[in-house]
Design a protein around this nucleic acid. Structure first.
Lengths: 196, 196
DNA sequence: CGAAAATTTGACATGACTCAACTGGAGTGG
DNA sequence: CCACTCCAGTTGAGTCATGTCAAATTTTCG
C-alpha cells in the first residue's frame, strides 16, 4: 500500500514486474518521523536515500558565516537525502528536518547496490532521475545568477504553487538566497496570479 | 588511439572488456572543430553528447535581457552537450562554441540507448557521471548564493587553475555571474596563491 | 601594422543587506 | 481560558556590494 506511490513514480520511467516489486520491497524499509525531527544532521553520514510518501522536509546547509541556506524542499513522491555523503560515506554538511509529520521509504547503499545488480531497471530509473535533477539544478543556478529577487520569487511561486502554502516565507527566502526582509518587500511588489 | 582517453575515463568507474570497447567504438564517431566554430546553437536540437579529447569549449545561454551566462567550460576528458535538449529532442536554449581547436567523440541518442542495452556498464558509468555532475552543480549553486564575488573568484581559481589560463576573464566573469568590470576589481583585491 | 576585443578605471546608481523596532499569531503552561 | 513567550512577518533608516555607463589603455590576432 505505502509502496504504491513509489512504484507509480518508478513506472513513469521503467515498467516493473511483480517479482521486481517484491525485490524492491525487500530492499527497503518504511520510516515515520514527526515534525521538527531530523532525518540527517551535519557531521553524520547519510546512510539512506529516502522517498517521501507523506509530509514535507527541508534540506539546508549552515555556512561558515552562520547563514542557513535551504537547498531543497521535498514533498510527496520526491527523493530526499544527501547524495554526496551517501555515496562517499563521509560526514554530511547538510541538515534535513521535517516541516510536517513524515513517512519515508528508506534505501541504504547496500540495498541500492543490490537493487542495481538484481534489477537493472532500477539503475536506469536512477540515471533518469539524476538526469532530471541535474537539469533542474542547472536551471536553478542560471536563474539564481541572472534574476532579480522579484523575478526569482515569481518563478518560485509559478513552479511550486503547492509547496508555497506549506512552508513559511522565511524558508522560501532562504531557498531563494535572499533575506526574509527582502522577501517581505518583494511580496509587496509582486502581484499574485489570480486564484483558481 | 583517440579512444584511449575515453576508456580511461570510463574505467575509473567500471571495467571494460575488449569486446565492450569495440561496441563503444562502433557506437560513436570522432569530430573535429576549429576555434570559434559552434557545436550547438540556440534553437537547434542537441543530437549528440560529446566527450572532449582535445580543446576547450564553452556552453552559454543568452537570457531575455540579452545577458550571456556561461554555464560550463569543458576541457579534455569532460563531457559537453545540452542534456535537456538531447533527452527531450526539443530545441536547445544553449550555445556551445569552441574556445580552441577541438576534437570530440560523439554519441547520438540512438548510439547511447543501444549502448545502455548492450553494455549495461555504460549505463552505470553515466549514472555515476550524473551523480557527480549533480553534486557539483548543487555545490556551485550554494556557492553562488552565499559567497561574495571575491570568494567566488578565489574558489574558481582554486578549483580550476588549469582552465583559468586558457580562457579570458570576461568568460570567467560570465561563469561566475558577475560583470567583467567587477571581476577586474575583484582581481586587484585577490592575492594570487604562489605560483608553482 | 591595425582593427577588434579585452581589460582597467572612474563616477554614479541601485538592489539587497543589516540592524532595530514593532505587530500579530501560534503554542505553552498555569 | 487567559497570560506569556516566541517567532514569523513587516517596516524604516542607513550601508555596502555590485551593476551601469563611459572612456582610456592594453592585448590579441588577422
Amino acid at each position: 500500500m505505502v509502496y504504491g506511490q513509489l512504484f507509480t513514480a518508478i513506472e513513469k520511467h521503467v515498467k516493473l514486474t511483480e517479482v521486481e516489486k517484491d525485490i524492491i520491497r525487500s530492499c527497503s524499509s518504511v520510516k515515520k518521523l514527526r515534525k521538527h525531527q531530523y532525518l540527517l544532521q551535519e557531521g553524520n553520514i547519510a546512510h539512506t536515500e529516502n522517498f517521501v510518501i507523506k509530509g514535507c522536509l527541508r534540506s539546508y546547509e549552515v555556512n561558515e558565516k552562520g547563514q542557513e541556506h535551504v537547498i531543497q524542499f521535498s514533498v510527496e513522491e520526491w527523493w530526499v537525502g544527501d547524495l554526496l555523503s551517501f555515496l562517499t560515506e563521509q560526514p554530511s554538511n547538510y541538515n534535513i528536518d521535517c516541516l510536517e509529520d513524515c513517512e519515508l521509504i528508506q534505501f541504504t547503499k547496500a540495498d541500492l547496490n543490490r537493487l542495481y545488480d538484481e534489477v537493472p531497471k532500477v539503475e536506469r530509473y536512477f540515471r533518469i532521475l539524476l538526469q532530471n535533477a541535474y537539469i533542474a539544478t542547472s536551471q536553478r543556478l542560471l536563474s539564481a545568477m541572472s534574476k532579480t529577487a522579484v523575478e526569482q520569487y515569481a518563478a518560485f511561486i509559478k513552479k511550486y504553487p503547492h509547496i508555497e502554502r506549506r512552508i513559511t516565507n522565511k524558508q522560501i527566502a532562504s531557498y531563494l538566497g535572499i533575506t526574509p526582509e527582502s522577501l517581505s518587500r518583494v511580496r509587496k511588489q509582486y502581484i499574485a496570479p489570480s486564484k483558481t
